[in-house]
């Protein structure tokens, strides 16, 4: 990431020095502003979901869900600790249900736990599954198409599900091939 950041920011800054030096600072603060807005949105979303999640955990529901889909989790991630498995299970479940906002805090927790345990393979798999999107209902796209007077705004649902399956499956396969366990 240090390399990517250094190159992209460095080259962009050099280009802007010649083309439009006065726009560099507004661009940087503009990016920062987006991050601040996003953080507030995240605080709102996480507060609600972490509250609900804690209720689930106290009630012992998360443990039951973990047990139910642990074979799938083990198949994907190999052997992981009990703590990591709990977060991974919730992350995958939420991702499949299209609840991205629930999946993210669980994903961060899972990555943190796996990082402490030095499990690079499971970490790579977790990221690939999240980054290849498992969304089942592209609600934003449907509403956008409907707003632009599409005759059949829903006709992209089937191809979208197929494409997202293709990306997730190829991501899982590539991880299995290229990342050492």
């Amino acid at each position: 990431m240090n390399l990517i950041f250094g190159i992209i920011l460095g080259v962009s800054a050099v280009v802007m020095t010649f083309t439009s030096p006065e726009t560099l600072l507004p661009a940087m603060t503009g990016g920062a502003e987006k991050a601040v807005k996003l953080s507030f949105t995240l605080i709102v979303i996480y507060s609600v979901w972490l509250g609900i999640f804690n209720l689930l955990e106290r009630s012992g529901v998360t443990e039951k869900i973990s047990k139910l889909i642990s074979p799938i989790v083990r198949l994907l991630f190999g052997s992981v600790s009990e703590k990591a498995e709990k977060y991974l299970t919730l992350n995958v479940t939420a991702n499949v249900l299209g609840l991205g906002s629930v999946a993210t805090p669980m994903g961060i927790k899972a990555a943190e736990t796996l990082d402490e345990e030095g499990n690079e393979y499971a970490k790579a798999m977790l990221f690939t599954i999240a980054a290849t999107s498992l969304q089942i209902m592209p609600t934003t796209v449907i509403s956008l198409r409907a707003a632009l007077s599409s005759a059949a705004p829903y006709d992209i649902v089937a191809p979208t599900i197929l494409s997202t399956l293709v990306s997730t499956v190829s991501g899982i396969l590539l991880t299995k091939i290229f990342v050492k366990k």
């Binding site: 992209i8 962009s12 560099l24 661009a27 503009g30 990016g31 987006k34």
Partner: peptide
Amino acid sequence: LTVLVMCEVFEKSGL
């Protein structure tokens, strides 16, 4: 924040 600053500059620079 760091990633979003990078993305914004990358886009605005025309790169």
